[in-house]
Design a protein around this nucleic acid. Structure first.
Lengths: 355, 355
DNA sequence: TCGTCCCGTGACAACGTTGTCAGGACGATT
DNA sequence: AATCGTCCTGACAACGTTGTCACGGGACGA
């Protein structure tokens, strides 16, 4: 088949196995004995090519392992799409971002579109640099779970018509589509749930105070506590927890003496995991109530199973995909703000009563 | 700032807020009163532009929200890189693929490279189509956790010099770099561990028989059983389990009568989870031993904590990244096969003795 | 004063593709 | 037989960028 006798110099280098430039339409045209334009017609399945010529061109193309260059094609075409969208998420390896990416990918694939994925790790500079990179690659759309708190830097892109959907966090300083969860509501419900089960001394574990969702969750908790008339003395708020380990350490600290919380609300899933670890090692898993924000795999298999506020990732992702591709398809209606209501998933850990 | 008086017709459409074509170097050149080439020089930070001109060009560029078009640039450049690699994984939302993606992303970012990620879900057609798409996008490299069992279809790309690294599964029919785990060894160790704890009647839960890793894991188990002289009657092999639910159902089946296994080896992490669910609901969690292949978050928090064969994802990802970018940088040494030894992580569930 | 060199700048072609248009062959129509 | 229309094909320019080369002018040495 691909014997060493191949003589179409461009692809198979005669002796060395070194890579050689890819065949272009010109090469195919030469081999098939037709013009460039005819090859283009065949490749794009345009009408008006005789079967015989089409056959000859296809044969030549496959003989040369011709692969269409979409970048050159897009450059020339009028209303070109690159068939690529960007997704800048918090961290593609955490289960929330990963599930979101997956749902988005499924929507994108249905539109013949590939997804460039990257993690921001709450680093503002990274976000700016990555957006620049995506724009330079002329992505058709952008999904952004921002690390920044102000988004004016996106104004020119939005003006230029870059379809952009914010997810999990709202845009500030620019107007764009967004799909977020009602964090205030979700955490208020969680704390109300704890209060209803008799808790007064409730500890809150929260992420960086600069992150909008963390702020909202804190606000929801405070609203519920205010409504329940819980005095400041009974409130424990630990902010700026970035990792599971940090949460674990914080929770250990609670039980080293003094009046200790009978319930814990963890404002992010890995903080809940840290809390569970701490309680487990202190032998308190069945004595201190825990509710986490954001469900995760296996939360139901813990002992006790973890009660959580669940954000429906599938719904979020689908909503993001719908919005994004509607914009890409030309929808120019005013930006939409989709807010999804989280639900409390009762599993056991949140229903433990204070001792 | 961006008042409606803006008069540089190309970007800001006068009345409608409709998106308008992006500014090109030509526009910048016109506004700055210089030639195209000079703009190119400034944009690419080439030497030999007087500070005054440079300043003028930069000002014009920012006024027009100019964004460099890397596709046009790459088209023209000699040894162009697109600064994009593709990662075709089993499912970006499962923790193994997601972690791998993340590690790869980190390596890629260090090389100014973006990652196109997609999930194959064991669908062969999808793999072929996605590879074609990535090649058409002229990715600089490809990471592949293949769904197919034969890879001849990649031969022409490899010949054309597309850097490709197989991960988790070996290439068949072509020669390429790979990073895999010694599945035979890992599962043999797991079963040996169970045998050492007194088990004879051991059930195996396995993925599709067409998947290489599943085959290898089965082989490892059988080797250990053969060595231990376990009779066929004591062996229970359930193959073609695709989901956690399927595994759960299978395990439930074991305990509906007849001689039931005293230990379970689950050949994939979600199969282990299914097994744990089943045992939990049957009240057997502390009576039947379980070992899973592939670690996952929270395995240590289960009750009992899950003993697993761990594949070091960080190491795998780093290895993949190293190989890939070495190839991209021009390394043409013969393909390498990196095999990583998995380790048994003892946590409790695998040390339960038969009753 | 002249020639040389260097520096900053621009004209032009080219990357791989597609849109536009024109032309040739051929059968059908008058 | 001349005319027309249809069908197939190709020449050429253009997309946005960069590599090559050439040009004009000022500094410098002879």
């Amino acid at each position: 088949m691909s014997g060493p006798s191949g003589a179409h110099g461009r692809i198979q280098s005669p002796d060395s196995g070194r890579p050689v430039a890819r065949a272009t339409m010109k090469d195919v045209a030469a081999l098939a004995g037709v013009s460039l334009k005819t090859v283009s017609r065949v490749v794009n399945r345009e009408a008006g090519v005789s079967p015989a010529v089409r056959e000859r061109v296809e044969h030549a193309a496959s003989r040369l392992d011709y692969s269409h260059n979409v970048h050159a094609s897009n450059l020339r075409r009028a209303n070109s799409r690159t068939g690529t969208v960007g997704a800048l998420l918090q961290d593609v390896s955490n289960s929330f971002s990963a599930s979101l990416l997956r749902t988005l990918e499924d929507v994108a694939r249905a539109q013949q579109t590939a997804v460039l994925a990257a993690s921001l790790d709450e680093e503002e500079g990274r976000e700016i640099a990555l957006v620049r990179g995506l724009v330079a690659r002329r992505v058709d759309g952008l999904v952004l779970m921002p690390a920044t708190s102000r988004h004016e830097y996106l104004a020119s892109e939005l003006r230029a018509g870059l379809p952009t959907v914010f997810v999990d966090r709202l845009p500030h300083g620019v107007d764009a589509d967004s799909v977020t969860v009602d964090n205030v509501l979700g955490s208020r419900h969680a704390v109300e749930h704890l209060v209803r089960h008799g808790h007064r001394r409730i500890a809150l574990l929260l992420d960086l105070g600069t992150i909008q969702t963390a702020q909202d969750r804190l606000r929801g908790c405070r609203e519920a506590m205010d409504a329940a008339g819980i005095p400041d003395d009974d409130r424990v708020e630990v902010q700026n927890l970035r990792t599971s380990d940090a949460a674990e350490a914080a929770v250990r600290g609670f039980y080293r003496g003094g009046p200790s919380p009978t319930a814990i609300f963890a404002g992010r899933n890995d903080l809940a995991i840290g809390a569970v670890r701490a309680l487990r090692s202190l032998g308190l898993s069945h004595r201190v109530a825990v509710i986490g924000f954001d469900d995760f795999p296996l939360a139901d298999l813990l002992e006790p199973a973890l009660t959580v506020v669940r954000q429906n990732v599938g719904q979020i992702g689908a909503e993001v995909g719908r919005l994004l591709f509607a914009r890409i398809a030309g929808d120019t209606s005013p930006p939409r703000r989709v807010v999804i209501e989280p639900t409390l998933v009762v599993r056991g850990s949140g229903e433990i009563r204070p001792t």
